[in-house]
Each structure stands twice: as C-alpha cells, then as structure tokens.
Computed example of a mutant assay.
Amino acid sequence: MLFPRIIFFLPFLAFTRSDPVERNSAAICEFFQHVRAFQEDWWDDIVVAMKTMLQEMITALEPYPEYEEYRKTMQDYVEQGKTIVKSSRLEDKVAFVKGFNERGDQPVLTGSPAKKQALTRPIDHFRSNMIFKVLTEFHNKLLKAADDLERVVRFPDSSSKGELFRLLQQYRTSGIGSLTEEIASRILALKDKYQCA
C-alpha cells in the first residue's frame, strides 16, 4: 500500500516545490481566463435582457398610434438582434446593446400617469434585472475567483502584489456599482502585462 501513496504524493510535491513565480503566473493566467468567461456571460445576459425589454416595449406601444413609427423602429432593431446569439463575437454583442441607445430617436412619453407607467414598465424591469441578476451574478463570480486566486498566489511582501491585486481590492471595497460594469475590461487589460495568452 505504500507504493500507491508515493505515486499520489509525487505530483503534489512537484507542485509545492515548483518555482513560486511559475505557480503565481499560472494561477493569474487562469484567473484571466475565468474573467473572460464571466465577461462573455455578462454580455450574453445583457443581450437576452435587452431583447426581452424591446419586445415588451413593442407590446406596450401597440395601443398608441402616436408611437407607431417608434414601435416599428424597435421591431426592426429586434429583427437585427436575431443574428446576435450566444456564439456571436463579444464585439457584436456590445454593439447591439449600445447601438439602440446611441440612435437618439426615442420619443418623449406623454399622457396620463397610467400610460407613462405602462410604457416605462419594460425599462424598469430591465434595470431591476440588470441590478439584481446580471450585476450581482457577475460580482459574486468575480469575488469568488479573486478569493481563489489570492489563496493560491504568494508574494514575498504586499508591495510586490502589483496592479491586478490593487484593482481587486478596490473592487471589493466599492461593491456593486459603476465599477462592476468596467471591472472585467480593466482586469483583462492587464493580461499582456502578466504575459498571459
């Protein structure tokens, strides 16, 4: 029974005796891969939420002929969005989400409070979904990955940790908010600095 135990512990000993810099680099590069996957999930969720919101807006606008032109514009955009799927390039997903807001042809909603509420309800649903599902899910995944990274990576002192770890600390203290949206891009921008593929 001694022989199998020796075989089991050999890879473990090799890892513990391997170069700390090499271990740190491997763990950091793996962390970047996770963040990239989280970013992909983030944009997939936003695309789905936006398509749902646009469809709800189209339905909400149907009883109001004064918004017919705008409703058709939304319908055209939903049709364009059918080509944006999970396997689409990240750049195409970002362009789809940002594109509609950049068009600048949204009408001013007028009428009774009940009418305004009916027309803004899909936007309110979209915002709450973004905060309570998409942002929160991304935030939790990133914090867990950061915790896992910091358990594995070892530095001789805190001054040698570098920009990535300062950014993660800043992210932890700021919580969910505007930094949540840009954190993946800011982290991934450091990839080359750590020489990760």
Results as ranks from 00 to 15, higher is better:
residue 128 S to R: 15
residue 41 D to V: 15
residue 127 R to H: 05
residue 102 E to P: 06
residue 79 E to I: 13
residue 103 R to C: 00
residue 5 R to G: 11
residue 197 A to C: 07
residue 148 D to S: 11
residue 15 F to R: 15
residue 74 M to Y: 00
residue 184 A to N: 07
residue 13 L to M: 02
residue 73 T to G: 07
residue 156 P to N: 08
residue 41 D to E: 15
residue 143 L to A: 08
residue 183 I to L: 10
residue 30 E to D: 11
residue 181 E to A: 06
residue 143 L to P: 03
residue 190 L to P: 01
residue 77 Y to L: 00
residue 91 E to L: 07
residue 101 N to E: 08
residue 42 W to G: 03
residue 192 D to I: 14
residue 90 L to F: 01
residue 156 P to K: 10
residue 170 Q to S: 04
residue 22 E to A: 13
residue 126 F to N: 09
residue 1 M to Y: 07
residue 79 E to W: 05
residue 78 V to C: 01
residue 64 Y to W: 13
residue 138 F to E: 05
residue 195 Q to Y: 07
residue 157 D to I: 10
residue 195 Q to P: 14
residue 1 M to Q: 08
residue 85 V to D: 03
residue 108 V to Q: 04
residue 20 P to V: 05
residue 5 R to Y: 13
residue 28 I to M: 08
residue 77 Y to M: 08
residue 101 N to A: 11
residue 33 Q to L: 11
residue 79 E to Y: 09
residue 177 G to P: 11
residue 162 G to N: 00
residue 37 A to D: 09
residue 38 F to K: 15
residue 149 L to D: 02
residue 82 K to H: 12
residue 40 E to S: 12
residue 180 T to I: 14
residue 77 Y to D: 01
residue 189 A to Q: 02
residue 144 K to F: 10
residue 48 V to C: 06
residue 137 E to T: 14
residue 119 L to I: 06
residue 58 I to H: 04
residue 152 V to S: 12
residue 119 L to N: 11
residue 67 Y to A: 03
residue 81 G to R: 02
residue 190 L to W: 00
residue 55 Q to K: 15
residue 136 T to L: 10
residue 8 F to Q: 04
residue 82 K to L: 13
residue 50 M to L: 14
residue 105 D to T: 13
residue 87 S to L: 08
residue 127 R to D: 12
residue 76 D to V: 03
residue 131 I to D: 12
residue 69 E to Y: 15
residue 193 K to M: 07
residue 88 S to T: 03
residue 77 Y to G: 04
residue 177 G to V: 13
residue 108 V to E: 08
residue 140 N to H: 06
residue 16 T to F: 14
residue 87 S to G: 03
residue 113 P to V: 07
residue 15 F to S: 06
residue 51 K to W: 04
residue 61 L to E: 04
residue 27 A to P: 10
residue 153 V to P: 03
residue 94 V to S: 01
residue 159 S to H: 03
residue 175 G to V: 12
residue 54 L to M: 15
residue 105 D to S: 08
residue 44 D to Q: 14
residue 34 H to Q: 13
residue 116 K to L: 10
residue 127 R to C: 09
residue 4 P to K: 13
residue 172 R to A: 10
residue 45 D to N: 06
residue 114 A to F: 04
residue 95 A to G: 05
residue 44 D to F: 04
residue 117 Q to L: 10
residue 48 V to T: 10
residue 169 Q to F: 04
residue 184 A to V: 14
residue 162 G to F: 00
residue 143 L to G: 09
residue 18 S to G: 05
residue 172 R to F: 05
residue 187 I to Y: 01
residue 71 R to L: 01
residue 156 P to R: 09
residue 170 Q to E: 15
residue 40 E to R: 14
residue 103 R to V: 02
residue 177 G to N: 14
residue 141 K to N: 08
residue 126 F to A: 01
residue 60 A to Y: 00
residue 128 S to P: 11
residue 165 F to N: 01
residue 152 V to F: 11
residue 167 L to H: 11
residue 12 F to A: 05
residue 120 T to S: 10
residue 12 F to I: 15
residue 18 S to F: 01
residue 151 R to T: 13
residue 139 H to I: 06
residue 63 P to W: 00
residue 193 K to E: 05
residue 95 A to W: 09
residue 90 L to C: 02
residue 88 S to D: 00
